[in-house]
């Protein structure tokens, strides 16, 4: 019984590679892994050091373990401003991505399921929007928000964040292939309005795409640095990326914040890297 199974698996695996090429591949992978992990390791180790050890001890190994103390100092520095920034980032990125997902899904669904004049033109314009970098739009947006006196507000960062042309593209492709016309038709015959059909039928089928759009947009907003840099002046509104950049630019003035910046970066990056890995995983699903 066991013999045929093994032979079947063997057949499935194909010809066995030589030890040499296998270990060669492993070596390359190991070097890559090392290369990608070292900066994160360094960040973690640096976050555990006090200011003196930071420059004088071996950069990739622990000196006196001060992680807790550093984090406590970070929490106390300027009345816990860092956590306010984290909260802001989560709000900008979380709420922004949720609204962006809703809008993108609606539009993608509409483009996929309704035929109307100018549909392809509209889609192409949106697709073109994917190619316009957010950085290039920051200054025009600043001038627009200045016109209505809304710079340096929560909305100046939030509103531009709820636009996701890539999400529209993804939602359209996904809706075309996963929401059958027959189903929409059936819903209509059963007396469901268009909006109700969208929320009760289409979104159920489009959930994988929506999760992907949400995560992509979350990471995009989280990492968007230039827009808050231009829009915001009140430090209570800063997202964590901008706040840390500003602290980092003050290190020469106030050397003690150096330790905070590295431990703050450590807290922040552990969060966003776990998110981005979640994102790439779901991207594969979507």
């Amino acid at each position: 019984m066991s013999a045929p199974t093994t032979s079947a698996t063997k057949k499935h695996q194909g010809p066995r590679e030589s030890l040499f090429s296998r270990s060669g591949a492993m070596l390359v992978m190991a070097i890559c892994t090392f290369y990608f992990l070292v900066p994160i390791w360094w960040l973690f180790v640096a976050a555990t050091k006090d200011r003196g050890d930071f420059t004088s001890s071996a950069p990739l190994w622990f000196a006196d373990f001060n992680l807790i103390e550093n984090i406590v100092n970070l929490a106390n520095y300027r009345d816990g401003l860092f956590f306010q920034w984290m909260l802001n980032s989560i709000l900008y990125a979380g709420a922004g991505a949720a609204v962006a997902t809703l809008f993108a899904t609606m539009m993608g669904y509409a483009l996929a399921k309704y035929s109307f004049p100018g549909r392809e033109t509209l889609f192409n314009v949106v697709l073109g929007g994917v190619l316009v970098p957010a950085t290039a739009l920051a200054l025009p947006l600043f001038l627009v928000f200045s016109q209505v006196g809304a710079t340096n507000t929560f909305w100046s960062v939030f509103l531009p964040s709820i636009v996701s042309p890539f999400g529209v593209y993804l939602a359209r492709i996904y809706a075309t292939s996963s929401v059958p016309d027959e189903l929409v038709e059936a819903a209509r015959i059963d007396g469901s309005g268009e909006i109700r059909t969208f929320f009760t039928v289409a979104t159920r089928l489009m959930t994988p795409a929506m999760v992907t759009i949400f995560l992509f947009q979350f990471v995009t907003i989280w990492n968007n640095f230039f827009l808050p840099l231009i829009m915001l002046r009140d430090e209570k509104l800063f997202p964590v990326t901008l706040g840390l950049y500003i602290w980092n630019s003050q290190v020469n003035q106030i050397p003690e914040i150096r330790a905070y910046v590295s431990s703050a970066h450590c807290c922040r990056s552990s969060r966003s890297s776990s998110l981005s890995s979640a994102c790439s995983a779901s991207g594969a699903v979507g």
């Binding site: 200054l139 600043f142 001038l143 200045s146 016109q147 006196g149 710079t151 340096n152 840099l229 231009i230 002046r233 009140d234 430090e235 950049y245 500003i246 630019s249 003050q250």
Partner: peptide
């Protein structure tokens, strides 16, 4: 008091943009 990165790190650019837009500090 409002804050920002050091001058060359972005604050000067912001000042010029804000002066242009008429809402500089």
């Amino acid at each position: 008091v409002q804050t920002g990165p050091n001058g060359l790190g972005g604050t000067y650019k912001n000042f010029f943009n804000q002066i242009e837009a008429g809402n500089a500090p």
